[in-house]
Nucleic acid binder design. Structure first.
Lengths: 86, 86
DNA sequence: CTCTCATTTCGATATCTATCTAAATGATAT
DNA sequence: ATATCATTTAGATAGATATCGAAATGAGAG
């Protein structure tokens, strides 16, 4: 895991909101687009940043690609931050 | 606490290294500058970003300003990330 | 095989950020 | 008061990034 990519990915509000959306359940791209006032191209870009940071995983189902949180990376971030505290 | 500022602050490698330095003990600006190959102006900028994100606190001692980690903000980040996992 | 439609890529732009040198500030100590 | 020195601000530049509309891709369904 690369902290650089992870924190950069988390440093954009749209991406944090996408992550929060995925907390409840996996969604496909169009469902995510529908939550925002931004173009599908923009959301696609954000998804690729999140995917590159391994914060989300994608899984094909029928004609959709479903995105879901990758909680193991979240654990690694928590581990790094915790290590700063002593 | 503003996540925007916090994650942006953490998304730069120099700033993460400054934070790691401060894990052990408070340091003043010149001591931090000495750890890097960057100008004092650049480090000053990074310190101000970290301060603005409340990731570090500053305390005057004699002719130096000592910077130290603000662990309570670290706890808030951990809290936010943990909340994503369920 | 072809149509449809979900998703990504392209190309462009405007804003943001990290960095530098040089100058300004501000506080301590003589 | 003034010289010194730690720190910040100013102004500039190069590179990164968020965003868009439009075009391309690619996989399912008929």
């Amino acid at each position: 895991m690369k902290f650089q990519e992870t924190f950069k990915a988390l440093s954009d509000p749209t991406r944090r909101e996408i992550i929060a959306l995925l907390r409840d359940k996996p969604l496909h791209a169009q469902q995510i687009v529908d939550h925002f006032q931004q173009s599908n191209a923009t959301i696609s870009h954000h998804l690729s940043v999140l995917k590159n940071a391994e914060l989300i995983l994608d899984e094909k189902q029928g004609k959709f690609i479903y995105y879901e949180l990758n909680t193991s990376v979240l654990d690694e971030i928590i581990g790094w931050i915790s290590s700063l505290k002593s």
